[in-house]
Design a protein around this nucleic acid. Sequence first.
DNA 1: TGTGGGGTCTCCCATCATGGGAGGGTCAAG
DNA 2: CTTGACCCTCCCATGATGGGAGACCCCACA
Lengths: 135, 135
Amino acid sequence: MSRPAVTIGEASRATGVSEKMIRHYEAIGLLHPARQANGYRRYAEPELAALRFIRHARDLAFPLEDIRRLLALWHDRGRASAEVRRLALAHVAALEEKARVLQSVANSLKHLAAHCHGDARPDCPILDELEGRQG
Amino acid sequence: MSRPAVTIGEASRATGVSEKMIRHYEAIGLLHPARQANGYRRYAEPELAALRFIRHARDLAFPLEDIRRLLALWHDRGRASAEVRRLALAHVAALEEKARVLQSVANSLKHLAAHCHGDARPDCPILDELEGRQG
DNA sequence: TGTGGGGTCTCCCATCATGGGAGGGTCAAG
DNA sequence: CTTGACCCTCCCATGATGGGAGACCCCACA
């Protein structure tokens, strides 16, 4: 079934994770590929699965420290789903907070831009605001 | 009217910009404070105004390279407001795009979490999804 | 046997904005 | 003269990612 272990280039193509990142994930301890005699890394099915897992988690913007815990939970056959859910919901809250902040800043700036005629004249409420004029 | 130039500590307290950042802004050429004989930086009213300007622009999440151009436009008494407006609207678009992406990722994850019972059992659709099960 | 080319290795540097900290100079008050 | 507050420069770290140098490995082909 599972083909023999592959090199980093093939692992990268198979999982969509760049070689740079694969090495980085190993450096921070998310991954432990075997080595062959010449020092080349070998990726067997479990390592490829971990790389896919990491990529999907990154697609969901989980920070690598969260992913470290998710991988541990994933490997723990007896884990409680509650902990995964807690982690995910905390992450959702963080993402939504960031999104809210960005949108709110965008709204403020849009408001300013709406009052800027934006022609050849130098008058500009945007610059006035940045300068800090109180009126 | 304007008090004499102040040191970096006072400038920091007066503008809400950390000393670290004040020095950094100078290092990248946003600021050109004079120095006194002993090498200490001196901030007079124009520099303090620039620091306030930068802080307000950072509050609006403008990247420093944008701020560099905004400062130039601000100093250019004859500038056209159109360019400031263009810069601001491009920034708004970038902010809104980021906010959209974050919110969309958050929504995906919320959807997954909604289907995770989150109790002591190990079954977890979140991990299943990360693992890459297609159904 | 030699060479070319593609793959891999490690190590350093850059991003972006920000902060921590070391090691040392300056200055005024006690 | 010491103490303490302030300032200086330089290096390092963050988080995730990529670029690139210099060297090694290996296979195929002439």
